[in-house]
Design a protein around this nucleic acid. Structure first.
Length: 504
RNA sequence: GACCCCAUCGUCUAGUGGUUAGGACACUAGGUUUUCAUCCUAGAAACCGGGGUUCGACUCCCCGUGGGGUCGCCA
């Protein structure tokens, strides 16, 4: 089994692309076949090396790997279409010499006018075949005069049938397909031709691609027949639609994988999410790692109907995977988002046996110059692990740990419209007396204090009269992790300082 | 418009002739709770319409309807 993923480097890797790549990857891995990455850059004007780089980088980030490709080579290379002109030339010449393709000298203006006319009388827009039966003498003459031309395929009248791996029997009547353009010149094929030749030359056995390419399939089969190629097996995946049911595009928000990555979506989330856009295992399991997907994936279970991209589900999954992460790993992932701190590069290095890289073992709070350790950061991140939906949120959520001065409206300190003065006084006094600054002890003392206080002011067991002002004093926010947990991480000195400031 | 594809809660979907039509996200209510989350419990929520076939259709067939895709010297 040999599959391919053939992006065109005219844009970055987006949701749709990545889903197709993933499905190809899953099938190949399951069936122990080979996946080929082929770069379809026949459109030299729109193709850019930076897009190819983006595609490669992000596929790898997702954990999608291939066996042959421009970056790693392979025995059926080159893997960029722009480097395969010699191969195409041979086939294009053959098509012309066998009279299965022909030169067309019609100008774009002429073609356009033709199309306009056909539209105006409600006919399907098709090429008139004007150049189809031009004499060899005339062709030679025009070629000699350097008249611009393209090469068209001589589409025969017949019915094309094929069995789609996902959709079953599909029929097309080629009467509705005109003599489509297959090359700009003898060495510059257009999409349909290049794909067909490459799939054959690269011995591709299965083609898994988006449903949007379904109308191209009969054209490619026609070319295969003209060139004497075998026909691979086709499977057309449902398209991905935006919430308004139109094709997913930029106006629906972010579509680039890179954007999701930067926003703090985990690759586990994206893989799990993408897999369920068009596939499901048939039972109630919904959480899947890439390994489990490889094990359970099958074409029979892939969906025929279009899937709608649902951001809420993506967020839910991301929160789920964040909660499951090991705290050390989660902290590593969050550090790049923490813009109020910077790493302190140690002068010593790991011993050669451990890689010899420079060692970062501390971080510096930019505003205060204070040095903090990785384990300390773990504690901070740990406070927010179950509240985080995307990594980027960590910046705002934990900013109060790294700010010298908190700025907030003092009115926020009131719990149920009560002046917080006495509560803060009691807090300060109590905190001052606490010797052992550990969560358990703090919890015990502050719980007692808050219950006593509530009783004293006739508010039953409502601990908010102490806890709310404490939260606001420490964080300046109206929602946060638990104030006692925060105090424990913040330390006695800073906690007291912030409580005192709240009183002013 | 032509061709092709598709059709179960708002969304992703399970279901392959007989089910109280199941799950998840989102939503609502309640519980836990100092806030926000998490967690737990409960709830509301669907077979596009019409004809067949059949003892019996969400399931099979046909016709509508709706949605989507494609109609480039782009891929």
């Amino acid at each position: 089994m040999r599959l391919r993923f053939p992006p065109s480097p005219t844009g970055v890797l987006h949701i749709g692309n990545a889903r197709t790549a993933l499905f190809n990857f899953l099938l190949v891995q399951k069936e122990k076949g080979n996946l080929i990455l082929r770069i379809e850059d026949t459109d030299q004007e729109r193709s850019k090396a930076s897009f190819e780089q983006d595609i490669v980088t992000n596929l790898k980030w997702l954990g999608i790997e291939w066996h042959e490709g421009p970056d790693i080579g392979g025995q059926y290379g080159p893997y960029r279409q722009s480097e395969r002109e010699e191969i195409y030339k041979k086939h294009i010449k053959k098509l012309i010499s066998e009279n299965k393709a022909y030169y067309c000298f019609c100008s774009p203006e002429e073609l356009n006018a033709e199309k306009q006319y056909q539209m105006s009388i409600g006919k399907p827009t098709q090429y008139s075949q004007k150049c189809r039966s031009m004499s060899q003498v005339e062709i030679n003459q025009k070629l000699k005069e350097n008249q611009p031309f393209i090469i068209r395929f001589k589409t025969p009248d017949k019915e094309i049938k094929f069995s789609d791996l996902i959709r079953g029997e599909i029929k097309f009547d080629t009467k509705l397909i005109d003599d489509f353009a297959i090359a700009k010149s003898v060495e510059k094929p257009l999409y349909n031709l290049a794909v067909t030749i490459d799939d054959f030359e690269m011995k591709i056995s299965h083609i898994l691609r988006g449903e949007d390419l379904l109308p191209n399939t009969p054209k490619q089969i026609l070319i295969q027949e003209a060139l004497g190629f075998t026909t691979p097996l086709y499977g057309h995946l449902p398209v991905i639609l935006g919430p308004d049911k139109s094709k997913l595009s930029k106006r629906h928000g972010a579509t680039a994988i890179e954007e999701y990555k930067n926003d703090g979506y985990l690759k586990e989330t994206i893989i799990n999410f993408l897999a369920f856009l068009g596939w499901n295992p048939g039972d109630e399991k919904e959480i899947y790692s890439i390994k489990e997907l490889i094990k359970d994936f099958s074409l029979e279970k892939t969906q025929k109907s279009a899937a709608i991209f649902n951001l809420e589900r993506l967020n839910y999954l991301n929160g789920f995977y964040i909660r499951k992460k090991d705290i050390s790993e989660l902290t590593q992932l969050c550090i790049p988002y923490l813009d109020l701190i910077e790493p302190v590069i140690a002068t010593e290095q790991y011993p050669p046996a451990y890689g010899g890289q420079q060692l970062i073992h501390n971080y510096k709070i930019k505003e205060t110059g204070e040095t903090i350790s990785f384990p300390y950061l773990e504690k901070i991140i740990g406070l927010y692990q179950e509240r985080l939906k995307k990594l980027s949120e960590i910046t705002e959520l934990t900013s109060y740990f790294f700010q010298k001065e908190l700025s907030y409206d003092k009115a926020l300190l009131k719990w149920k419209e009560r002046d917080p003065k006495d509560a803060l006084d009691k807090l300060e006094k109590e905190l001052n007396n606490i010797e052992e600054w550990k969560f358990d002890n703090l919890n015990k003392k502050l719980s007692e204090l808050s219950l006593d206080f509530a009783q004293e002011i006739g508010e039953g067991k409502n601990r908010g009269y102490i806890m709310w002002p404490l939260r606001v004093a420490l964080t300046g926010k109206k929602s946060s992790a638990g104030p006692i947990e925060i105090a424990a991480v913040l330390g006695k000195e800073k906690t007291l300082e912030r409580v005192k400031k709240a009183k002013k």
